[in-house]
């Protein structure tokens, strides 16, 4: 996790955590504490200062005695003075909820099906280990397994991929990360065909084969962009009017601005590479999402719906 800068309340919480760890385990270096708590060394020093400055003015009692010489050498070392504080309080409801929901999310991932650690943690964080819905995703599980093995061994993959326009291609990909976003898994990796870091939705990978070749140096030095959305040279802006139930469409595409409430609907713009790939994303909401502009996009959506309807009528 990236190291975080903290506000006053979080800084206080960190001070409590440092007290707990030092009293339990003995002295640590500032660098070790920074690593353990995943905050900057500056944040550690501020928290240590809060511990050192703590005293009861009425009783003239110092709560903790900091070893200043050790700190000058990069070590955090202190002993209890008058304080009975031995560490942070138990997890707050909010902290427990945050972890419980995160665990719930992991439990829904096929690669964690039957994971006993997750089951034990879910019991601990009060969600209970609720049974899961059975899903026919053996192909997905096999793909995830192959990708995880390739990531662990830092070896390349060969995949046959079908994009959302139905175009197929075969390519070698150096895997860098496996993302699970919303309901979909994405392989993030350096694509040798396009010489770029790209995202591949797993259900669109038709064939996947592990190769013996190690991932390239270029891949090793590539950063994985935070967003899975690809960049396109030709982007179209599409204006939508959306019922609240379908608001997720604004989270599944890059947006221009935050959508605005107009009456009881949301109005906003999404960016899309190819208009031809738009209709399926609109039609799925069955009238809850309406394209306002451009007219070309509106017509494409209408044509897709009519074609589908005719195919179903026979």
């Amino acid at each position: 996790m990236p190291k975080q800068e903290l506000d006053g309340v979080a800084q206080f919480d960190l001070a409590l955590q440092i007290v707990g760890l030092i009293l339990a385990e003995g002295d640590k270096t500032v660098a070790e504490l920074s690593e353990i708590f995943e905050v900057s060394e500056k944040a550690i020093l501020r928290a240590v200062n809060a511990i050192a400055q703590s005293e009861d003015l009425t009783r003239c009692e110092t709560h903790f005695y900091l070893n200043d010489d050790a700190l000058a050498d990069g070590y955090v070392s202190f002993s209890s003075g008058s304080s009975t504080l031995a560490g942070p309080p138990k997890l707050s409801n909010r902290q427990s909820s945050a972890l419980a929901i995160g665990l719930e999310y992991l439990a829904a991932m096929p690669q964690f099906a039957g994971n006993t650690d997750i089951a034990a943690l879910r019991e601990l964080f009060t969600t209970g280990d609720a049974p899961a819905v059975k899903l026919p995703e053996s192909r997905l599980v096999r793909q995830i397994q192959a990708i995880q093995e390739a990531l662990e061994t830092e070896t390349a993959l060969e995949c046959e991929y079908q994009n959302q326009l139905g175009e197929r291609s075969s390519r070698v990909v150096d895997p860098l990360r496996l993302d699970f976003l919303g309901r979909h898994h994405y392989l993030r990796g350096y694509c040798h065909l396009t010489a770029q870091v790209r995202s591949f939705r797993l259900d669109r990978i038709l064939k996947l084969e592990r190769l013996q070749q190690p991932i390239s140096e270029v891949a090793r030095n590539s950063a994985v962009p935070e967003e899975v959305f690809g960049q396109s040279d030709q982007e179209h802006l599409v204006q939508l009017e959306v019922q609240p139930e379908a608001a997720e469409i604004f989270w599944n595409f890059p947006t221009v601005n935050e959508p605005k409430l107009s009456g009881d609907k949301l109005v906003g713009e999404i960016r899309i590479g190819q208009l031809e790939s738009l209709p399926r994303h609109i039609v799925r909401y069955g009238g809850m999402v309406k394209v306002l502009a451009p007219a070309e996009a509106k017509e494409l959506v209408r044509a897709f719906a009519i074609k589908t309807r005719e195919a179903k009528v026979g």
Binding site: M1, Q4, L91, S92, Q95, A98, L106
Partner: peptide
């Protein structure tokens, strides 16, 4: 599980919760 919050509303709470456990 904490990282899954990805800087959204509960990310800080998850992080500090893990800190307390550590």
């Amino acid at each position: 599980a904490g990282r899954a919050w990805n800087n959204q509303q509960f990310a800080q709470s998850a992080r500090s919760g893990i800190g307390r456990l550590k």
